[in-house]
Simulated assay, not measured.
Amino acid sequence: MTSCEITPEERTELHKALHAALNPLASALRSRASGLPEDRMWEADPVEVALSVLAAWKAVDTEVKRLTAIAAGTAGSYGASYEQMGAVWGITRQGARKKWPGAVSRPAAAAAHPGAVLELCGGTAELARDPSSGGWRWTGEGADGTRGASDGDTSYATKEEAAAHAGAFLGEHAAERS
């Protein structure tokens, strides 16, 4: 796995994106609390404005935790271990298990559901066993409407490998951002 560290440029872009998402939320929260129009939010008492921003960050934090749990569950459903998730998150295996209980499937549960659905970048791909080879194949539709599948006679040794190829396809066919 590659490093999870982001570059200074990526950090700057992330800050810009987070603040762009946060400001309308903070303005809406402040407007509801004060009765002032959103465009006058910054004219309010500085303590109240700062508390509105803090409340908006709390809402963002709650949503990030929810999305993180979904990502951990997805990783676990494709075979990632708590040790791997902990390494990515910078915590121990035990810490990952405590943070995302139930994210890692037990082998018996995985055998009961041999296929899987991958939702990524606004698209969806289905993973399934290839009965002729015993390997894994994928079919999917990107967010831009493009359909794709495993190439010809290609099947992958593991569900995770098929998911990686399907994920690359979905990433290439994400909907354009405005």
Score class of each variant (00 low, 15 high):
residue 1 M to F: 06
residue 2 T to Y: 04
residue 5 E to D: 11
residue 8 P to N: 07
residue 9 E to P: 00
residue 10 E to A: 13
residue 12 T to D: 10
residue 14 L to P: 07
residue 16 K to R: 15
residue 17 A to D: 08
residue 19 H to T: 06
residue 21 A to V: 00
residue 22 L to S: 08
residue 24 P to G: 10
residue 25 L to Q: 14
residue 27 S to H: 07
residue 33 A to K: 14
residue 34 S to R: 11
residue 35 G to Y: 04
residue 35 G to N: 07
residue 36 L to N: 08
residue 37 P to L: 05
residue 41 M to I: 01
residue 42 W to I: 10
residue 42 W to G: 12
residue 43 E to V: 02
residue 44 A to R: 02
residue 46 P to G: 11
residue 48 E to T: 09
residue 50 A to M: 12
residue 54 L to Y: 00
residue 58 K to W: 01
residue 60 V to C: 04
residue 62 T to I: 02
residue 62 T to H: 09
residue 63 E to P: 02
residue 64 V to L: 14
residue 68 T to Y: 04
residue 68 T to G: 15
residue 69 A to D: 13
residue 69 A to E: 13
residue 74 T to G: 10
residue 75 A to N: 07
residue 76 G to Q: 01
residue 78 Y to N: 06
residue 79 G to L: 08
residue 79 G to N: 08
residue 79 G to Y: 09
residue 80 A to C: 07
residue 81 S to T: 15
residue 81 S to P: 01
residue 84 Q to I: 02
residue 84 Q to Y: 10
residue 85 M to R: 10
residue 86 G to Q: 09
residue 88 V to H: 07
residue 88 V to F: 00
residue 88 V to E: 15
residue 89 W to L: 15
residue 91 I to R: 13
residue 93 R to C: 10
residue 93 R to Y: 01
residue 97 R to I: 00
residue 100 W to Y: 15
residue 101 P to W: 00
residue 109 A to I: 03
residue 109 A to M: 05
residue 114 P to R: 12
residue 114 P to M: 07
residue 116 A to I: 00
residue 117 V to P: 03
residue 117 V to N: 05
residue 118 L to A: 06
residue 119 E to W: 00
residue 120 L to F: 10
residue 120 L to D: 09
residue 122 G to H: 02
residue 125 A to N: 05
residue 125 A to G: 04
residue 127 L to E: 06
residue 128 A to S: 15
residue 135 G to N: 07
residue 141 E to C: 03
residue 141 E to P: 00
residue 148 G to R: 05
residue 151 D to I: 00
residue 153 D to S: 11
residue 153 D to W: 03
residue 154 T to K: 14
residue 157 A to Y: 02
residue 157 A to M: 08
residue 158 T to A: 07
residue 167 G to F: 01
residue 167 G to E: 05
residue 170 L to V: 05
residue 171 G to T: 09
residue 171 G to A: 13
residue 171 G to C: 11
residue 176 E to V: 07
residue 178 S to T: 05
